[in-house]
């Protein structure tokens, strides 16, 4: 009896999600002690208001990485969709929510382009999305002639980015809806099951009759559509649509996903892990801005919070990777030893 219980506590501790929750608690504790006004309602709602876009990208990136792929183009897609959205509203007078819908569809279209190249031509996702990373951003820059930006959106639209709804930032509700939908898809549908199968062994999935190309395509299309949505929300928050919207967001999103324990090789990982990874990053980002009594390199921490949080993010990711790899190697060694001692006669006797 006791052995089964200790086993389950051990396995709970070994779970990536548990470790992340501990990391998050530690962060909260640290920032609350060192910082000013960290655990204050307004600040907390800011934490999430400012990182909803990255959260959206991270959640949508999860299925892509589960299939063993990657999408570097989502940040650029945000730029392109933001610009298109701004043009539609500002120049052609479309109502913002209709334009938002078109932006999302356009994102899906861009994701579809990635999908076609990756699944139909069997090209490596890394390099295809590197190409569209450049292409989408380039089109955004070309459309705005490298400098123009669009603003002057109606107040009712800007509320999406700045107002509160039921005590929480308005956009967080959109995020909840998307995260819930993707959680359902990944964990409760055959589509999600097939993502894992494809990520573990895409040939094996094909031999089992899973429509590998179609399902993989869906993951990229969804990622593109969510990037479009993230662009609209970003524009609503900033009140301005620019070609540089979302620069570098793809890396932050991938960081959140990998930090959340999703295997970059595909197959294993959870949406909950991604969410925790994202929360850990968001709190780190915000918490450092609250520390003004301590100095680092002769600067108050708060004034170098961005750089510091970036640095810590990178180190955290490296640590997570190295620890994960070491644990895996140890587990394999232990399993081998066990299987040997259990079932074979002592070679010293014979």
């Amino acid at each position: 009896m006791s052995s089964t219980r200790s086993f389950s506590i051990k396995s709970l501790l070994a779970r990536h999600e548990t470790v992340l929750v501990l990391v998050i608690l530690l962060e909260v504790l640290l920032f609350q002690t060192l910082g000013k006004n960290f655990l204050v309602g307004k600040n907390l709602s800011n934490v999430f208001r400012h990182s909803v876009e990255i959260g959206l990208l991270a959640v949508a990136m999860t299925p892509v990485i589960l299939t063993g792929g990657i999408d570097l183009s989502v940040g650029s897609m945000m730029g392109l969709c933001a610009v298109l959205f701004g043009m539609m509203v500002n120049r052609f007078g479309l109502p913002p929510y209709l334009a938002g819908l078109v932006a999302v569809l356009f994102g899906a279209l861009g994701g579809g382009m990635n999908a076609v190249l990756i699944t139909r031509l069997n090209l490596p996702p890394l390099i295809v999305t590197l190409g569209t990373f450049s292409l989408f951003r380039g089109l955004a820059e070309a459309l705005t002639k490298g400098a123009e930006s669009y603003s002057g959106f109606p107040k009712s639209f800007l509320a999406l980015g700045n107002a509160d709804l039921a005590g929480l930032p308005a956009q967080i509700w959109v995020f909840f809806a998307v995260a819930a939908a993707i959680w359902l898809m990944v964990h409760q549908t055959t589509l999600g099951r097939s993502f894992r199968a494809i990520g573990y062994a895409s040939e094996g999935a094909r031999y089992a009759g899973i429509p590998v190309a179609r399902n993989t395509s869906l993951a990229y299309i969804i990622a593109g559509a969510v990037a479009g949505l993230a662009a609209v929300i970003l524009v609503a928050r900033l009140g301005e649509a620019r070609a540089n919207a979302g620069i570098g967001y793809e890396l932050l999103a991938i960081t959140a996903v990998v930090l959340g324990g999703v295997s970059i090789f595909g197959g294993s990982g959870t949406v909950a892990g991604t969410l925790l990874g994202w929360i850990a990053l968001a709190i780190l980002n915000n918490g450092l801005t609250r520390i003004s009594d301590y100095r680092i390199m002769d600067q108050p921490v708060a004034s170098v919070a961005r750089e510091l949080s970036g640095l810590l993010t990178g180190l955290l990711l490296l640590a997570a990777l190295a620890i994960g790899a070491t644990m895996k190697a140890l587990a394999i060694r232990r399993a081998r030893k066990q299987s040997l001692s259990k079932t074979t006669p002592n070679p010293a006797i014979s």
Partner: peptide, 30 residues
């Protein structure tokens, strides 16, 4: 070391070191 000896995928490893060096540099040089 991380890629060759720990068997980690180079895309994630270099993503992590990219962010690390970049931000360390920003912190240093402002």
């Amino acid at each position: 070391v991380l890629v060759a000896y720990l068997g980690l995928p180079s895309i994630v490893v270099t993503l992590a070191t990219m962010v690390t060096w970049q931000e360390a540099l920003r912190l240093w040089q402002q």
